[in-house]
Simulated scan of single mutants.
Amino acid sequence: MRQKTVRRRSAAFLALLMAVAGLAFAVATPASAAPGDTGDDGEGGSKTLIQQLEAASKGYVDAQEALAKSKTRQTQLTAKVKELDTQLGPKQAAIDEIAAQAYRTGRLGPMSALLTADSASGFLDRAVTLETVAVKQQAVIKDLKQTRDQQEQAKLGIDATIRDQAKQVSVMAKRKAQAEGALKAANAGQDDPQSTDGGSSDTSGTFSGGSGTVDDPTSGGRITQRMLFAYNQARAAGFTHYTHCFREQNSGEHPKGRACDFAADKDGFGGVATGSSKTYGVNLANYFINNSSRLGVLYVIWFRRIWLPSSGWKSYSGGNGDPSSDHTNHVHLSVK
C-alpha cells in the first residue's frame, strides 16, 4: 500500500516536473516571437550592416531612377531633332528659292525701283513691294536660323543626357559593390537565387505623395507616405495577412517609418512558415520585387535571403537563429 502511494507520488512529481519543464520550454522558444523581440532589431543584421545596405540601396535606386529619367529625356530630344530635321528641308528650300530668284532677276533696290518707275505713284508702289519682300525674306531667314538653333540645342541636350547616363551607371556599379562588400564583410551575401514565380507586376497605382509621415495603420507610430503606399498596394493585390510596420529599435528602417514586416501566417508571427504560409511569403516577396521601381524598394528580406535592387537574391542570416530573426515567418520590406 505504502509502495503504491510512493509510486503515485513519484509519478505525480515527475509529471509536475515535466509540465514545468514544458512550460519553461514554451516560454523560452522563440517560435512565435515577433520581429525585434529577440535582440537583433528585427532586420537580422548588425547596425553597421543595415546602415551600409540602406545607403548602398538608396544610392543605387536614386541613380537607377535618374538613369530612367535621362533615357526618357534622350528619347524626347531625339524625337525633337527628327521633327526639326523635317522642318529644315522646306525652310532651306525657301531660302534657296529667294537666292535663286535674286540671281536671275537682280535684287530690287530703291535705285532700281526709282529708275524703272513711270510715275510717283508707281515708285511708291514699287517701294511698298520692296519693303514687303524684304520683310518676308528676313522672316524666312530668321525662322530658318531659329530652327537650326533649336536643333543644335537638342543635339547638345542628347550629348548631356548620354554623359549623365554614364555617370549614373557608374554610381550604380559603385553602390552595388558597396552593398555586396558589406554583406561579404558580415560573412553573408553569397548568390542565392530564388524562383520569381508568383507575385506579378502591377500597374494599378503610381506613388504621388510627399516626403512627410502619416499614421501607421498597423501600430501607434508614424510611417512615410511611400511606405503607406506600398502597404496599401500590397493589400489591394490580395496580401492581407497580419502586418506590423513602425517599431522603436536601435537601427534599420522601422523607427524611420520606412519598413514593414508582413507575416506569412494569417493572424501573426508564428514559427517557420510551411505549406500555404510559405507560398504566401514567396508570392509576396516576388510581388515587391516585380514592383520594386514603382514602390521604391530598398531591399526585401525573406527566408534567410535578402533581395537588393543592385544584386538580386543573396544569402542573409545574421540574426539569432529564430524564425523572426531569420525572416522565415515574415517578409521584411524597406522602401526609400
Rank of each mutant, 00 (worst) to 15 (best):
G210A: 10
R235Q: 15
P255I: 14
G252D: 02
I95T: 05
S211P: 01
G39F: 06
E97P: 01
D265N: 15
K82M: 09
I141H: 10
R163G: 06
A160Y: 09
S32V: 13
P35F: 11
A15K: 00
Q225E: 15
V331D: 06
K278L: 13
R148A: 10
T5K: 08
N286I: 09
V297G: 00
D159H: 08
L228H: 12
S293Y: 12
R2Q: 06
S211K: 08
Q64I: 05
A120Y: 05
G281S: 15
Y280T: 02
G181S: 12
S315F: 05
S121M: 14
N291L: 13
K145P: 02
S204R: 11
L124T: 09
Y316C: 03
R304Q: 15
T279F: 01
K58D: 11
A273T: 07
A273P: 04
E152Q: 15
S208E: 06
A173R: 13
A24Q: 00
M1P: 12
L77V: 10
L333S: 06
E54Q: 11
K80W: 07
R235W: 04
S201C: 05
A179E: 05
R247L: 15
Q249D: 14
S325Q: 12
V140G: 00
V169L: 15
V169E: 15
T147A: 10
G281K: 12
P110C: 06
E131N: 11
D216Y: 02
L298E: 04
N320F: 10
D164T: 10
K184Q: 07
N283W: 02
V140H: 01
F288A: 08
S317V: 05
P309Y: 04
Q178T: 05
Y287T: 08
A120L: 08
A19D: 00
K184H: 13
L144W: 10
Q138I: 02
V135W: 09
L84V: 15
